[in-house]
Design a protein around this nucleic acid. Structure first.
Lengths: 221, 221
DNA sequence: TGACAATATGACCACCCGGTCATATAATAA
DNA sequence: TTATTATATGACCGGGTGGTCATATTGTCA
């Protein structure tokens, strides 16, 4: 954690340092990120930096945890009454909220993206040890509930479906960034929904052509 | 491209340099990778390195292209008579061949993994400009063919399915590395096949419980 | 043998890194 | 006022970086 001196700073100065650090850590991995650049960008001398933080790792963990906290807050606000939804609605909600989060907080989203690429094992584990990663268990719980409710065929493999959903989540984000680039996330909400629906159709109904049966979407129930 | 001097080297020495460079570039991104370490590991003086290569980028592009070439060769050998297969068989083949490739050439696979994380835009574009990325168009073509043959419901969205398959590919690899770690890829072939089958079942049949119908796997045709 | 070109080599360059520390300044309490 | 404590600051440290270059060594023809 940052030293007390850092938290005694006037909030303007503190926030400037934070945003300079986020800028740096969202564009370079732990090794490549530069304390010197962060100092220059936030107009603080090198010596002052080390009055505020123990070392580079201290800042890195602090910044990543800010992003994690923000994401958790965003999702827990979006997920009230989650239990009462069907699995389809839950997945749809998660996917679209994920995209919404990236649009509303591109900086935080970029930090998460960068963290997922992190090679430095010390940096990875320092962040993971701090931040509770409750998010990872989310899909697991969803699948379990849905099976109990009989929404999912019991023969579907849990682990397979879990990894499937995880990778789909990243596919949705990839789709958005491929289509709209990093330029401001000025996408049309409808577009996102359509794409999410397409993915969901595939997951729920399969891609196989059903012969001698109703149409594609009439498959449900 | 490396200078002529490099290709005039005795193949032992040349291969030692190549493998030292692969070791380095598979464990660190472009910025963090170190020419000095590569020199030490392959027992060549710094000065000699610059007799062989123009600069760091020259080596990087050369090494990445070796990995790309190898992967293309591996897959084109595995994919003869690809057209005659059904989509299901094609996907199954691709997934299991992907895992097989990672097992047979962990170094090349690690290089690809590292490249997908690369932040440096100059490094990315230098590699992409050189290597023809025909692999990306593969799923696209498969989907088109399968729709023409009527294997896939025509209402399935092409782009959605394409991204779905791409991310599934990485899910399969993720599954393998989670279950067996990087420790030599000593997995059981049967295990891979079971996992791939689980994923395929989901894609083809959907996860939704079908009421008043036959069993899960009897869905096909 | 001698002459010329190709190759090998490591000291060296300017620059950047994370981190330290002695000192200067400001704030606080007596 | 003075004494004490908290903060600010930038020169400095050892070490690593990609890249250069003068010089030494080797290979190749005549």
């Amino acid at each position: 954690m940052p030293k007390e001196t850092f938290f005694n700073l006037p909030s303007d100065k503190r926030n400037l340092i934070i945003s300079a650090a986020m800028e740096e850590f969202s564009k370079a991995n732990y090794n490549s990120a530069s304390i010197n650049r962060i100092c220059k960008r936030s107009n603080i001398p090198k010596g002052s930096f080390y009055q505020y933080f123990e070392d580079k790792m201290d800042l890195y963990v602090y910044i990543m945890n800010l992003a994690i906290q923000e994401k958790i807050m965003f999702f827990s606000a979006a997920i009230t009454d989650f239990q009462s939804l069907t699995l389809s609605e839950q997945i749809r909600l998660l996917f679209s909220k994920g995209v919404e989060f990236a649009k509303k907080h591109p900086q935080y989203a970029a930090l998460g993206e960068q963290f997922s690429k992190e090679n430095d094992e010390a940096a990875r584990s320092a962040v993971i040890k701090e931040g509770n990663r409750q998010s990872e268990a989310l899909f697991e719980q969803m699948i379990k509930n849905a099976k109990e409710k009989g929404e999912i065929d019991s023969r579907v493999d849990d682990l397979a479906l879990n990894l499937l959903l995880q990778s789909l989540n990243s596919a949705v984000n990839k789709f958005m960034s491929e289509k709209y680039g990093n330029a401001g996330y000025e996408f049309v909400k409808e577009d996102v929904n359509n794409f999410v629906d397409s993915i969901l159709s595939i997951i729920f109904n399969g891609i196989q052509r059903k012969v001698g049966q109703g149409g594609y979407h009439e498959q449900k129930n």
